[in-house]
Amino acid sequence: MQSRQADLTSATWRKSSHSNSDGGQCIEVSDDFPGVVPVRDSKRPDGPAVIFGTSAWTAFVSDMR
């Protein structure tokens, strides 16, 4: 497993398209970083983010559909 780090201070985050307005559990992702997809818990925006390679993220999203 490769460790990846990114400066996420300038990231623009978007909520999952499956998120609803009642404040339920959801994730946010950022599309600002070529080659990686940072993911964080929307309830903890100052918490840690998990960073996936784009191919791993694409496979995950495809499997979830």
Rank of each mutant, 00 (worst) to 15 (best):
M1K: 10
Q2H: 14
Q2N: 14
S3L: 11
S3F: 03
R4P: 00
R4S: 13
R4I: 13
A6D: 05
A6K: 14
A6M: 10
T9Q: 12
T9F: 06
S10Q: 14
T12A: 12
T12D: 11
K15D: 03
S16D: 04
S16H: 01
S19I: 03
S19C: 14
N20I: 04
N20A: 13
N20M: 09
S21K: 14
D22R: 15
G23V: 06
G23Q: 06
G23I: 07
Q25M: 09
Q25S: 13
I27R: 09
E28T: 07
E28F: 03
D31F: 15
F33R: 01
P34L: 08
G35K: 00
V36C: 03
P38K: 08
R40Q: 06
D41W: 01
S42N: 13
K43A: 13
K43G: 06
P45G: 10
D46T: 11
G47E: 02
I51A: 10
I51L: 14
F52W: 15
F52C: 08
G53T: 14
G53V: 11
T54Y: 04
S55C: 09
A56C: 07
A56Y: 06
A56W: 03
A56H: 13
W57V: 06
T58M: 04
F60D: 02
D63H: 14
D63P: 04
M64Y: 11
M64F: 08
R65E: 10
R65F: 04
